[in-house]
């Protein structure tokens, strides 16, 4: 499972990096999205990968922490998802404004001369 996840994160992040280096604003935003997915998975994996373990401790009983998965990275991921979603939406607005001002979707606001 570790290998699968590592490869998935690598592919997501690699495609993201390639896309944000492209000249079109839409490619950049998709690239940023892919990178943030990769990062979210990465944060999640930092709590160690566990199958079928609950992150919430039961009250009262004797607790054996090794039987639970770490709740902190899951909380961090939630926050990170919300924040990156919001900022990406904001970026989308600026992207549209830039398209409206310049009439092109090139990141520099003008096409490169042929």
């Amino acid at each position: 499972m570790e290998l699968t996840l590592a490869i998935a994160i690598g592919i997501l992040f690699g495609s993201g990096v390639w896309l944000i280096l492209r000249p079109r604003t839409f490619q950049v935003i998709v690239g940023l999205c892919l990178m943030s997915y990769g990062v979210n998975l990465f944060i999640f994996s930092m709590g160690r990968l566990r199958m079928g373990a609950a992150p919430i401790l039961t009250k009262g009983a004797e607790i054996d922490p090794s039987r639970y998965s770490d709740p902190v990275p899951q909380a961090l991921v939630l926050t990170a998802i919300v924040i990156s979603f919001a900022t990406t939406a904001l970026f989308l607005v600026v992207l549209l404004a830039s398209r409206g001002f310049t009439g092109t979707d090139h990141v520099d606001g003008k096409e490169r001369e042929q």
């Binding site: 944000i20 604003t25 950049v28 940023l32 990156s84 900022t87 990406t88 904001l90 970026f91 600026v94 992207l95 404004a97 830039s98 001002f101 310049t102 990141v107 520099d108 606001g109």
Partner: peptide
Amino acid sequence: VGAGLHYIAINL
């Protein structure tokens, strides 16, 4: 808007 686009992208 042009400067903002670059600024937002690099900060994200």
